[in-house]
Design a protein around this nucleic acid. Structure first.
Lengths: 209, 209
DNA sequence: GTCTATACATGGATAGAC
DNA sequence: GTCTATCCATGTATAGAC
């Protein structure tokens, strides 16, 4: 457990504001350079305060990183939770793909922070990966397996299907510069086309004939 | 243009050996921490030599990074080049997916280095992205569009299909720790299942009925 | 709560002996 | 070609005034 700055309860007005500014700046810098590549200087500047002042709120770099990560993980996990066993497979998968593409469009930094942490070994979120994440994937995999067993979906390995959806949707946040380069940049419809392509390919590939 | 260490021609025996050791160590460290997060200390230690000696071969951190990146980009691009217009769409797409999954299995560090560079803004490979990469994607997109026009493939946006294949296959290298956590780790068949799942979903989704 | 000053470690890079 | 020693900038973190 890391000593996480000032007591979690009873924050003054200015504390709340500053904390928010710091977390936002930290998200942007950590997601761009990873934990080791990020500097407190840059974060402090982006947050509009001095470095010692930043360290007043988060006494160590690591505690700031953990705080940002925790906020992000919850967000990252949320859409999957909405997948329902009693729904229509096509609807449920469609909605999930859409929700993840929306995340890539609306909060690319969160996606990149997560990608960066995993890429760098995931040491800071080992427990999350083997705990809550594995648990929800297991649960949703059972739902997908049931759909397959009931003939409502063609045979597929549920976990690898989930990987496929994650990979495809996150690609538009994590590999944004590459996507823009290939599409000749100012194609602002790319998220819609991405969502449609993913839905069409995956659903056509999996729905029974 | 960066001054890239000792003259590119006429290397002595030991120079070749050391250069190779450095490049390999650099790949491993840069891919794990990104450019800014990587340290010459760590690279030198992994390469089994002193830091000044390393700097004798690559006088600046940046020139070493560029050298490693260039080796990687060529590798990364190679499989796509083999996609032929006069082949069977199912075969061509199958082969490409397999080749990319094989890359993720056999050279995950290369995939991660590329991912890391893109994630961090891709500043070191802007020309590659807008030049050779865009060119080959344009070319292969035309092939896919022709298949669609000829009714050999169901309607799909070629570039987004390529993104989907990239994302899905690279996921197994870039997000390895997450994949292992979810699959309960020592599932050594994961690359085969991944390849089969991707091929099945994508081909079933795209081949005409 | 916020600032200035500063301690102390690490990292990139160079000098010069061998 | 390789090493030791070292320079200097940057980076995390603390002390203490206000």
């Amino acid at each position: 457990m890391l000593d996480d700055a000032i007591s979690n309860v009873k924050r003054t007005r200015i504390q709340t504001v500053n904390r928010e500014a710091i977390l936002q700046a930290a998200l942007s810098v950590f997601s761009a350079y990873g934990y080791r590549g990020a500097t407190l200087d840059e974060i402090a500047e982006k947050a509009g305060m001095s470095k010692p002042n930043l360290l007043y709120y988060f006494p160590r770099k690591k505690s700031l990183y953990v705080a940002v990560l925790e906020e992000t993980l919850a967000q990252w996990l949320a859409p999957l939770a909405t997948m329902k066993a009693d729904g229509d497979p096509a609807d449920e998968l469609s909605r999930y793909i859409d929700a993840k593409i929306a995340m890539s469009r609306d909060n690319p930094a969160a996606s990149r922070l997560f990608a960066s942490e995993i890429l760098q070994g995931g040491g800071a979120i080992t427990e999350f990966l083997h705990g809550p994440l594995k648990a929800i994937v297991d649960e949703k995999s059972r739902i997908i397996a049931d759909w397959v067993a009931a003939g409502r979906l063609r045979p597929v390995d549920p976990r690898h299907l989930i990987f496929m959806i994650w990979a495809t949707t996150q690609h538009y946040a994590d590999f944004d510069v590459q996507v823009r380069a290939v599409l000749a940049s100012d194609d602002e419809t790319r998220f819609d086309v991405a969502s449609e392509t993913a839905r069409r390919v995956i659903l056509e590939g999996l729905l029974p004939r």
